[in-house]
């Protein structure tokens, strides 16, 4: 049975292997250079404290390959579910070959176990190799990525570490189960894709923020967490602070919410999201454009008045715990669907 499963899989497995080898070779050739560029750049910028600019320049130079390899890791599980999972049973049902193979001297439970086991393991291995290779390669870029593409941010998190392995296993078994229920390849593929995408969206939006209680803390305003200061002339004029999704001292963190609070801890937010309001004179003093130094002293003044960024975030140190927990969740979902598929093939499918 293992032979038959492999015989049916080997074509697409070879294609998958070819793609992975090309990717691995490309990553292996460019990875060491990328890492040494990064080390040299950090050594240089540490001397004159211009590392912020170095990060931007370094990341800017490689943002396309960064996006491309991340996309490969994100897409791989979906493709596995679509092209390996969904047709695994429907192809047999459509051609009638299930009648041939279920009447050899092997129970259909065992048949399914070997098909699921072997194909699933190959899929997981492919996603695992791909995910870990990309994690290794993009390490310098992940360290210099802007806040929105930080390691903990939803999209990048899903394209690193061991989680892709969990996604692939889940997508595969999802495809198989949907295929058994729907019995037609194309509708099964469409439904698998829809369900998988929905779950992949629900996970970072609804579940992942709560895997561990997020940290809430207040930070002084600085170049890290402020995108810009501005003056709004309405209602006698006030200073607007545009906050970024980053917290000082916790690079790579996933900022869930960020708002401006005043010295007594009350929120000082404007209706516009991510913007805080500071009640300070804009006609005289450090925050008036007419002052001696223009606006340059304004941030210091705002900090002196006790305005702070209050942020809720998941710090970067939780990357690996989160990876394990999330992989575990997908493993449980996979087991649940596997149980369903066995139940269905014994009781309902004919």
């Amino acid at each position: 049975m293992i032979w038959l499963t492999w015989r049916q899989l080997r074509g697409s497995a070879a294609m998958m292997a070819a793609v992975l080898v090309i990717l691995a070779v490309a990553l292996a050739l460019t990875g060491p250079d990328l890492a040494s560029d990064y080390t040299a750049g950090i050594a240089a910028c540490a001397q004159d404290d211009t590392c912020g600019r170095f990060y931007d320049r370094f990341f800017g130079a490689y943002d396309l390959p960064f996006m491309a390899v991340s996309l490969v890791v994100l897409l791989l599980p979906a493709l596995v579910g679509l092209f390996w999972g969904a047709p695994l049973i429907t192809r047999e049902l459509e051609a009638g070959t299930h009648l041939l193979v279920w009447n050899q001297s092997i129970t259909r439970g065992r048949w399914l176990a070997i098909k699921l086991g072997l194909t699933g393991l190959v899929a997981m291995a492919a996603a695992g190799v791909c995910g870990l290779a990309v994690t290794w390669w993009s390490d310098p870029l992940d360290k210099s990525a802007p806040a929105g593409l930080a390691l903990m941010s939803p999209l990048v998190f899903s394209a690193r570490g061991i989680a892709p392995m969990g996604y692939a296993a889940f997508a595969f078994v999802l495809g198989v189960t949907v295929g058994m229920l729907v019995r037609r390849t194309l509708p099964a593929m469409a439904l698998t894709l829809a369900v998988f995408v929905a779950i992949q969206l629900a996970m970072p939006l609804l579940v992942r923020p709560h895997l561990m209680p997020p940290v809430t803390s207040t930070f002084e305003l600085s170049a890290v967490n402020v995108d810009g200061f501005g003056i709004n002339r309405d209602r006698g004029g006030y200073v607007e602070v545009r906050l970024s999704d980053a917290v000082p001292g916790h690079g790579g963190a996933w900022v869930l919410s960020s708002k401006l609070v005043d010295s007594s801890g009350r929120p000082a937010t404007s209706p516009e999201p991510g913007v805080g309001i500071v009640q300070v004179s804009t006609t005289s003093g450090p925050c008036s454009p007419a002052g001696q130094q223009g606006m340059s002293a304004c941030p210091t003044e705002v900090n002196r008045l006790g305005y702070r960024q209050q942020a809720t975030y998941q710090p970067l140190e939780r990357f690996w715990p989160f990876q394990w927990i999330e992989t575990g969740i997908y493993a449980l979902l996979t087991l649940g669907l596997t149980w369903l598929s066995f139940w269905w093939i014994r009781r309902r499918l004919s």
């Binding site: 049916q8 070959t97 009447n103 129970t107």
Partner: peptide, 23 residues
Amino acid sequence: AGTPAQLARVGFVAQDTPVYAGL
């Protein structure tokens, strides 16, 4: 089809005699 042994004792050729086209 209760056990592999039972399956071994009964042969079945289905309608339209399906075979694996790719094999």
